[in-house]
Computed example of a mutant assay.
Amino acid sequence: MAPAGAVPPAPFVPVPPAAAQDPAAEPAPDAVRRRPRGRTSLIVLAAAVLGVAIGGAVGFGVQADRDPTPLGTLAHARLAYPAKPGKASDPLPVAQDRQVKTDGDLTELLLSAPKNADVGEGYGTGWMTLSDYASNYERPDYMFDDLLGSGVRRLAEASWAEGEHRETKINLVQYRSGDSLGAADHFAAQMNYLPYEEGADSEGDPIKGSLDGRYFIYPVQREAGYLPMYQARAIAVRGDIVMDIFVFDSEPIGKKTIRSLAERQLERL
């Protein structure tokens, strides 16, 4: 029994469990069921694809029913055709066909010796062996092997003497028919050292009528007990032939001398 004046405690009212609550009450947000998304997306995508296909088919049908649009006029002139197709071009005359010249007797393309020149023993015009040509170089063995493996076809030479001590020598080195690369390589190899040979220290002067041909005037060489030696050289390539010209003298050699020889020999090729 509670003492007098005390406030009685509030009666305990039990809370009913969730299963006993009013079923009409609104459920919690997390308890709401959501519709699956996959099915709606597939329906939208199928409708888009079907719309594109139907639109393309309709557009193709409309375009097919239209008349073709004519093309504009060409801006350039019409191509010209020969009156009689299949007719071959006339061959070049011998004077203009360089291959006919160089496939013949190569010695006939060499310059002739000047009047009153000495073409006696040790001089003249004719064929040249590979070893004879290689002997003109400081290392004949190396030059011989190099030329032998590079496709040399034949060599021709013309030489003569003038005055007391002047000698002129012209060499034509021809490579296999149509093999202009061998001639170009030979020329390039010579040009790699010619400007610096025997102290020349010069790029040389161009030969008229040649793309890269050059002629050189070398400084005098003196040795006790011997006459001074002057030297000039010209080298150029024309097709499958390398032209190589040497002039030696105990007197100075003018540029006009070697230049004239080189230009006239080049014309004959």
Score class of each variant (00 low, 15 high):
A113S: 12
D97C: 08
M1I: 06
R39C: 05
D212G: 01
R34P: 00
P9W: 00
S260T: 15
S41M: 10
R37Y: 10
S131I: 08
P16D: 08
G124C: 07
P3F: 05
A53W: 14
A83F: 08
E198T: 08
R176W: 02
V173L: 12
T40K: 05
A6K: 07
T129F: 05
D249W: 08
I170K: 00
T102A: 06
A6R: 06
D132C: 00
G178L: 08
V247G: 02
G56Q: 08
P9R: 00
A158V: 02
Q96D: 09
G120L: 01
L147E: 04
A83C: 06
Q221P: 03
A161C: 01
W160Y: 13
Y193Q: 04
E138S: 13
E26Y: 03
L148C: 06
V52G: 00
G124Q: 11
A80K: 11
V44L: 14
D145Y: 09
F246I: 06
Q174C: 03
D146Y: 12
Q190W: 15
A188E: 15
V152D: 01
P17F: 09
S131Q: 14
A53L: 15
G56R: 07
F216E: 01
E251M: 11
P36N: 08
R37A: 11
A188G: 02
A200E: 07
Y137S: 10
V220L: 09
G56V: 13
R98T: 06
P252W: 08
A88G: 07
R153S: 15
S177L: 10
V7A: 15
L181K: 13
P36V: 02
K255Y: 02
H186C: 07
T168S: 09
L227I: 01
G104N: 04
P23R: 09
S250H: 13
H165K: 05
G61F: 05
A161G: 09
V119C: 03
K115L: 04
R154N: 14
A161L: 07
P29C: 03
P27K: 14
V49I: 15
D179I: 10
G72P: 14
R222L: 13
T102I: 15
P85Q: 05
Y193M: 03
R39P: 03
G199D: 14
R176E: 15
E203G: 11
H186L: 12
F248V: 05
R268Y: 00
P8Q: 10
P91R: 12
S260K: 15
P23T: 14
F248I: 03
P114L: 06
R214W: 06
D179Y: 05
K87C: 02
H165W: 10
D185I: 02
D205R: 14
R78D: 14
G61L: 10
V62H: 05
G126D: 11
Y123T: 01
T40N: 09
Y133P: 00
A184H: 06
T168R: 00
A77L: 10
R37C: 04
G209M: 07
L227G: 13
G124D: 11
S250E: 11
D141A: 14
V242A: 12
A64V: 08
R37G: 09
G199L: 07
V62M: 12
V44C: 04
S150L: 10
L269A: 02
